Structures are given as C-alpha cells and as structure tokens.
Amino acid sequence: MSDPIEAAIFEKLAKADPKNVGGKSIEPADVAKELQPEQWQRMLPKVKATALGLMRQGKLTITKKGKVVDPNNFRGVIRLRLPTEAETAAALAALPPVESSDDDFD
C-alpha cells in the first residue's frame, strides 16, 4: 500500500476493530488529523476522496447515520468501516467489465 492516506485509513480501522469483527467505524476527520494535525481541514477532502475510491473497489464502506451511502450521491457527516462480504461483492459487481484484448503479442 503506497498511498499514505489509504494506509492511515486501514491503520485507524485496525485500531478501532482489532479482532476484525466488523461494525466498528471511524471518522474521516480522525484520519486527516493523524496525517496533518495542524492543517487537517485541508487533508479532509483527500481522505474522503480516497475513501470513496476504496468503497468503489469494495475495500471500504461509507456510512451515514449507520446506513450505507450511495457512492455517487452523498453529502454531510460520514463514517468509514470495513465492508461485509455482501457489500464487497456488490461493489465489485458494479465495476465496469474489464475489456480483454484478442491481440497476442508473441
């Protein structure tokens, strides 16, 4: 994991839910404060954007008031948590199909 924001998100989640039982969530602001304590407000949009990308990959779930948000349409205060197996499967099913090329480079 080369992205420091991504790493910080998963580190915070590991601390919040050390047994990986699920259901424990964190605030994006906590991640931003850990990365840049003095200017965390500037980091917050980057943390949210990274979380959104991770949600679309099925690696993270974004919730609002305990309910999973639509990744294409949400606003306001959110929380981050690890996804259930069903949420991961749904996110991966929503990804566009990978185009395969018939060209062989022999």
Rank of each mutant, 00 (worst) to 15 (best):
M1W: 09
M1K: 15
M1S: 15
M1Q: 14
S2G: 10
D3V: 06
P4W: 05
E6F: 01
E6L: 10
A8P: 12
A8V: 09
A8N: 11
I9P: 11
I9V: 12
I9Y: 03
F10R: 12
K12Y: 05
K12F: 02
K12E: 07
L13F: 00
L13V: 08
A14Y: 01
K15P: 04
K15R: 14
K15T: 12
A16N: 02
D17A: 03
P18R: 10
V21K: 06
G22C: 05
G22Q: 05
G23A: 03
G23D: 05
G23P: 08
G23V: 11
S25F: 03
S25C: 09
I26K: 06
E27T: 14
E27N: 12
E27D: 10
P28M: 00
P28T: 00
A29F: 03
D30I: 01
D30A: 02
D30P: 04
D30T: 09
V31W: 00
V31R: 01
V31H: 06
A32T: 10
E34S: 08
E34Y: 01
Q36A: 07
Q36T: 09
Q36S: 13
P37Q: 09
E38A: 07
W40S: 13
Q41H: 09
R42V: 10
R42S: 12
R42G: 14
M43P: 05
M43Q: 07
P45A: 12
P45C: 09
V47Y: 03
V47P: 11
K48I: 15
K48G: 05
A49I: 01
T50C: 07
T50L: 03
T50W: 00
A51R: 01
G53S: 11
M55G: 07
M55H: 04
K59N: 09
L60S: 01
L60E: 02
L60I: 03
L60P: 07
T61K: 01
T61I: 02
T61C: 07
I62N: 03
K64S: 13
K64Q: 14
K64P: 04
K64F: 05
K65S: 14
K65R: 15
K65H: 07
K65T: 10
K65W: 00
K65C: 03
G66H: 04
V68F: 04
V69P: 04
D70K: 04
D70V: 04
P71A: 13
P71K: 08
N72I: 02
N72D: 13
N73C: 08
N73Y: 08
F74W: 09
R75W: 15
R75Y: 14
G76D: 05
I78F: 00
R79K: 15
R79Q: 13
R79C: 10
L80N: 07
L80W: 00
R81I: 11
L82E: 08
P83N: 08
T84D: 05
E85K: 07
A86V: 14
A86Q: 15
E87M: 07
A89R: 15
A91H: 11
A91T: 06
A91F: 15
L92P: 00
L92W: 13
A93F: 12
A94L: 04
L95P: 03
L95W: 11
L95C: 03
P96A: 14
P97A: 14
P97S: 12
E99A: 14
E99T: 07
S100C: 09
S100L: 14
S100F: 14
S101T: 12
D102R: 10
D102V: 11
D103F: 13
F105Q: 09
D106C: 02
D106E: 10
D106F: 01
